[in-house]
Every structure is written in C-alpha cells, then in structure tokens.
C-alpha cells in the first residue's frame, strides 16, 4: 500500500511570533511538523508496521523548508517530496492543493493522510480541496482508523457526537487529536535522516498557471486585551462575592 502524508512546516507552537512591516518575522523561529500532520504521519507509520506500506511525505514550502521532511524521515517515513516555490507566502490553499494533486495523480496512491488543520493558519482546507479535486472520499477529524485492502473504516469526531465513516480507497483522511500519540525519533533515525535524499519538485512545473485567490493585505500584532484586575479580599468568600458583583454590575454578563 502506498500512503501519502501531507506535512506542513510551521513555527513551533511555543514560538514567539513577531510582526514587522506587515509581515511575520521568521528569524529565530524553530520549525516543526504541524502537530496534527505529525499525528497523521504517526498513523501512517503504524499502518506500515502492522501490514506493510510505503510512506511518502509531501510538503509544499520554500526552498529552505526541509526540516519537517527530515523529521518525518527520522520518524520512519520512506520517501519525501518537497514541492518548492520561491514565493511560498504567496500561495493560497487552492494552489497548494493543486500542486499536491499533480504529485498524487502521477503515482499509485491508496491512502492520503493529513492533519485536520495547520497550527499556523488553522485553515484545514488543503485536504478537503485535494479530495474534492481528485473526486475521492474525504473523512474528517479521525480518531480511530481501520484500513482494509480496498476500504477504510474511520471513527470521527462529528457535530454532536461520533460518526463512523466508510469509504473505498483511495481516500483522504484528516487526523484529529486523540488518534494516536506521535513517536519521538530516535538517534539512529535522526542520523540516517540527514543522509537521505529528498525528491525536490518545482511548483511551477506542477501547476504551470495559477493565480492567488486571496490578497494578504498585512499581518499585525494580536489585539491586546484590556488590562484585567485581580479581585482582592480577606477570604475566598470575599473574593467570590467581589467577582459575582463585578460580573453583574461592571461586565454585565450575568
């Protein structure tokens, strides 16, 4: 079985994000695989361990964004495809989906796994667009996955409950938190990952003509919250009383 995992390289979730001149400052940021994509990759590696599979990670990004693929290698991915665009920041979700579509169409892929959303933009559009464009099934928010020879059964978090989805392969599945606990790469994996080749593709060869459907006007600092206050009081009961009074009289929310 050929499994493709979509991985996006994003700033570490703990990283401080600075904005300068309407853009995000990239200096000093530690880059990681977006956490949900890491869960998707872990699931692919577990399928590989259980029933044998080739796991290929695909990442669309700027030329220097290879550390996510190296981490994926260290975790156990077999192949890495890096789709490079020199002005990656200009790409929108649709053009990224189109590039991945072009990669996938040239291969024999049974299963495509991705995170439910990237931790930077929280968009979660690419997997859905990819499935829609390929005309194959998409199962969102997976928390449990059973892969058969030509079908997949997935337990997903759904609106107001849990849903079991069934789809024939190929299909796209997005990983939710709770699907698994991703492994840490071991030292041997990390050492080997450094030497492994990355299959680099040129975005403009995959998607010869495209136009961004969104204009990024400017980034800005998050809106500061008004300064809060600590409620004082002798006892816990005094503080509780002060809180209820503030919520009622000042904030008017109760």
């Amino acid at each position: 079985m050929n499994i493709f995992v979509l991985i996006k390289q994003v700033p570490d979730t703990e990283a401080r994000i600075r904005v300068s001149g309407g853009s995000i400052v990239h200096d000093g940021i530690k880059w990681i695989i977006s956490p949900y994509d890491e869960i998707a990759l872990e699931e692919a590696l577990r399928i590989k361990q259980k029933s044998g599979a080739t796991v290929t990670v695909v990442s669309v990004g700027p030329a220097d964004a290879t550390s996510a693929i190296r981490t994926a290698y260290a975790m156990g991915a077999d192949k890495g495809i890096h789709v490079v665009h020199s002005e990656y920041a200009m790409l929108d979700s649709l053009s990224i989906a189109k590039a991945i579509e072009a990669v996938v169409r040239a291969e024999d892929v049974q299963l495509i796994l991705a995170g439910r959303q990237g931790s930077d933009s929280d968009n979660g559009q690419v997997p859905l667009m990819l499935a829609t464009r390929l005309g194959i099934g998409l199962i969102p928010f997976a928390v449990e996955l059973t892969v058969g020879d030509d079908s997949v059964r997935v337990l997903s978090e759904a609106e107001g409950g849990r849903a079991v989805y069934q789809a024939t392969l190929p299909a796209v599945i997005t990983a939710n938190a709770g699907l698994n606990e991703p492994r840490y790469p071991n030292l041997k994996g990390i050492m080997e990952a450094k030497k492994k080749a990355i299959d680099t593709r040129n975005f403009s060869e995959l998607v010869p003509s495209w136009e961004s459907m969104v204009e990024v006007v400017a980034y800005g600092d998050a809106d500061a919250r008004p300064k809060g206050k600590i409620l004082e009081g002798e006892t816990a009961a005094d503080k509780a009383r002060a809180l209820v009074q503030a919520l009622h009289e000042e904030a008017k929310v109760i």
Partner: peptide
C-alpha cells in the same frame, strides 16, 4: 467556522475554484 463549516466550506471553495477566507 465550526465543525460543519470546516467540513463543507473548503469543498465548496474547491468546486468554485477559490479559497476560504476562514475564521
């Protein structure tokens, strides 16, 4: 931008050949 919106909006956008301005 909730469960349903996340599940449907990007599919609709793909069918319309555009993106979602989300959240």
């Amino acid at each position: 931008h909730d469960w349903y919106g996340r599940d449907i909006s990007a599919r609709v956008a793909a069918l319309l050949d555009t993106v979602v301005l989300s959240d």
